[in-house]
Write a protein that binds this DNA or RNA. Sequence first.
DNA 1: GTCTATATCTGGATAGAC
DNA 2: GTCTATCCAGATATAGAC
Lengths: 193, 193
Amino acid sequence: MAKRGPYGKGIERRERILEAALHTIAERGFLATSVAELAEAVGLSQSGLLHYFGSKEELFVAVLRKRDEIGALELGEPTPEVLVRVVRRNTQVPGLIELFTHMQAAAADPHHPAHEYMREHYERGVARFAELLRGMQKTGAVPADIDPEVMATAFMALSDGLQSRWLIDPSLDMEYYLQRCWTQFTGQQFPGT
Amino acid sequence: MAKRGPYGKGIERRERILEAALHTIAERGFLATSVAELAEAVGLSQSGLLHYFGSKEELFVAVLRKRDEIGALELGEPTPEVLVRVVRRNTQVPGLIELFTHMQAAAADPHHPAHEYMREHYERGVARFAELLRGMQKTGAVPADIDPEVMATAFMALSDGLQSRWLIDPSLDMEYYLQRCWTQFTGQQFPGT
DNA sequence: GTCTATATCTGGATAGAC
DNA sequence: GTCTATCCAGATATAGAC
C-alpha cells in the first residue's frame, strides 16, 4: 500500500499522526486529550495538525477508522470468539472506548462527521457478524431458526451498552454477560468454553 | 410535597426550571441547547439560572433525575410491558435520549456529576427489573432457570445500545428487537403480544 | 507544507451591584 | 435571588514568513 509520487509523503505523515493519536488517546483518555496535545505528541503545531484533518471532530473520526483498520488486521479471520476477543482487547484501552462512546453520542447530529462513520460501522459490523452466524448455522453451532441479522444487531447493541456501562463501572464483567447471553440466546454453549 | 417556610420558593423555582429545561431539550435536542437558551426559556439570565445548579453539567444531571422522577410516576406499577413502554415513550423525545447518551459518555470521568447519577441509575434499574422478573418466574411467565440479575443487566445494556444506535439511524425498530430478544432469551412469547 | 502569530467567535464561569 | 458586566478557554480561520 506504499505510495509513490505526489501526496505519498503527506499520506504517510497522516498515518503516523493517526497512530500517535491512537496511542495518546488510548493512554490518557478522550476527555483529557486536546488537539494541541495530539499535535505535540507527534511534533506538530496545532494548525499544522489541523492542516491534515480540517477539524478536531474529523480527526477523531479518522482515529476511529484507523482503529477499525488495525483491529481488522489483528483479529484476522472471523471466528465465534471474535466477540469476546474484541471486548477483551477493548478493556485494555478504555480511552478508545471513551472516544467511541463520545463519538456515538455526537453522531446523533447528521452533520457531524461521526454520523456517516457510525452508519458504516454498524452496517459493516452487522453484515460480518451475520455472515459468521450463517456459517455457524451450517455446522449446527447455532440453531437454524435464529435470524442472523437480528441476532447480530442485538449483540452489537448489547456490546455497546455493556461497554458504556463498563466505562462507568469497570467491575462489570462484560465477557461474562456476553457469554451468558450467547448461551441463553442460542441454547448452545459459547464456542471455546 | 409542597414546601413551606424558607427555601420553599427556591425549590419551587428549581422544579419549574427543570420542567422547562426538560421540555426545551426534548424539543430542540441536547446539542442545540445552551445554558443561555434554557435560561431564556424560563425567563432568567444565564447567571441567574446557574445560581441554582452551579454548572451546566450539574444542571443536565438534574434534568435527567427529574425525567426519571416523572417517568416513574407515569409508568406506575412495574409490569412486563414497561420495557416496551419506556422505549416507546423515549422515541417521542429523541432530544432526551441524546442528553442521556452524552451524559453516559461524560460519566466515564469519576469526577463528573453524571458519574454518580449513572451508577445509581443502573443499580436501581437492574434491581427493579430483576424484581419484576422474579415475580414473573413465580407465575411461570419466565423460566425459573434464568438469573434475574443477569437478564436485567443484559436487557438494560441492550436497550441502551439500541437507543444509541436508533439516534443515528431512526429506522431501527427498537421494539421489534427488544421483543425478539425477549422471546429468544426466555423461550416465551413477549407478554401482551 | 508547515510554521508563528493573531483575530474572532462561542459558550460557560465569576464578581459584585442591587 | 437576580442582574449586568466581565473574563476566560477552546475552536477555527487567516496572514504571511520560511
